[in-house]
Design a protein around this nucleic acid. Structure first.
Lengths: 224, 224
DNA sequence: TTTAAAATGATAGTAATACTATCATAAAGT
DNA sequence: ACTTTATGATAGTATTACTATCATTTTAAA
């Protein structure tokens, strides 16, 4: 017996729900592996089709193009982090403790949690770190935003901002702090790995404690 | 009579110094206009060639590809901001005042300062805001980093981190704060324009005061 | 169980992109 | 006046990002 989480995303993200078929789930599974491996620029539907013994045409029946697939994956990640936060803060009263859990979820969620069978959360986290910003830095951002395609990020930001306001109702920038914690987490993991002179923290053996400590320190200072 | 600033960049960024010839300066000038206009993904050397009545082949003599051109532009921006900071903090003693000037430079430098004739700094700032992160989120980041192609960002971060340490020698994350101020500035201008639910600030008529206030508030809280 | 509908595969084709190569001409420097 | 260097003109190639059509397989409904 097993229970699988099912993450539901905005329908505008795909042409046909990929989570409903073997092929769709394969697209998700192997696109994560290939994007993580090659990087988004070198990732193509042709390579993916070959990898899963399918065809370009078939993949195009699920996703309009590779940008939409990336957006799907990133939304999936945002939703999954939201889900973990809601589970892990469920019986926590103290908002400061909640915020600690949130920070831990941003930094290390993918390492602690076994997830959905067709999603390697750790690799997906890598993608969010390395390619995530590309999902919303495009010319189509306004159009896509009007269709709700960034809804999961907004809703995550909203959840976190509420906790921030619980901790300090006078703090003027709860949304900015919420998104900044998320972005900073990704940025500084990336910097530590690739541009270490741009950060103070370091990462050895995939241990992200220093990132977490930094975010906690920032948060504490800002909200006290 | 006129004095023009001349910004020198790492030689690995180009095949032939574009600032030395009319064609090269045209490439810079019109690539800024076109990237700002079409977005980086829809920008091509073919379009640029047409715009400046030249040819693709000629442009390829200056830049290896459009990614290198973007990296060149972003480095140019980093250097230019560094230059403005050095000028504007020159006779300033108080490190807190210096930091204020730095924040102002991050947010509004392009609006206050007439610059180099072939660079529209305001449009370049837009590019840094909308496309800048793409310059270092690639599979080639380590290789390019080893060639010093992110040197200007590192040097900017270094300058700012020193001022941060002057303000508060005990602060543990001077580099992270330095880069975060820069990234936050760009991010929240972008959010305010395109994804307003992700931030608390708003921008009317290109007035970035709220961004500046927010960064000052964060900085003060963190360093006090 | 038959039958219809839906999903996938196989194949082909197109326009655009991201280049590279070659040769001619123009401009600049000595 | 001569030679180097820069630019233009043109052509060509492999890859990408699709779209279209038809055959086949799988699933679901009657």
């Amino acid at each position: 017996m097993s229970v699988e989480i099912r993450i539901t995303l905005n329908e505008g993200l795909y042409l046909k729900e990929p989570q409903d078929s073997k092929l769709g789930r394969n697209i998700i599974k192997y696109s994560i592996i290939l994007i993580d491996n090659f990087g988004f620029e070198y990732f193509t539907f042709k390579k993916l089709a070959k990898e899963i013994n399918s065809t370009e045409a078939s993949i195009y029946r699920y996703f309009e193009n590779k940008h939409m697939l990336l957006l799907f994956l990133v939304n999936w990640y945002w939703e999954w982090v939201s889900y973990l936060i809601s589970i892990n803060t469920m019986n926590v009263k103290n908002p400061k403790d909640k915020l600690k859990i949130i920070i831990h979820s941003f930094v290390s969620a993918p390492k602690d949690n076994p997830g959905v069978s067709y999603v390697n959360e750790s690799k997906l986290h890598n993608i969010v770190i390395s390619e995530g910003v590309k999902a919303y830095h495009t010319k189509e951002v306004d159009e896509e935003n009007s269709k709700g395609l960034f809804g999961s990020y907004k809703s995550l930001a909203n959840t976190v901002s509420k906790v921030i306001t619980e901790v300090n109702p006078k703090f003027k920038y709860p949304f900015a702090l919420a998104t900044n914690l998320f972005e900073m987490s990704n940025n500084h993991i990336y910097f530590a790995k690739h541009l270490p002179r741009l950060t103070d923290i370091s990462i050895k053996d995939d241990n992200f404690d220093e990132v977490e400590n930094m975010l906690e320190y920032f948060t504490k200072k800002l909200l006290d």
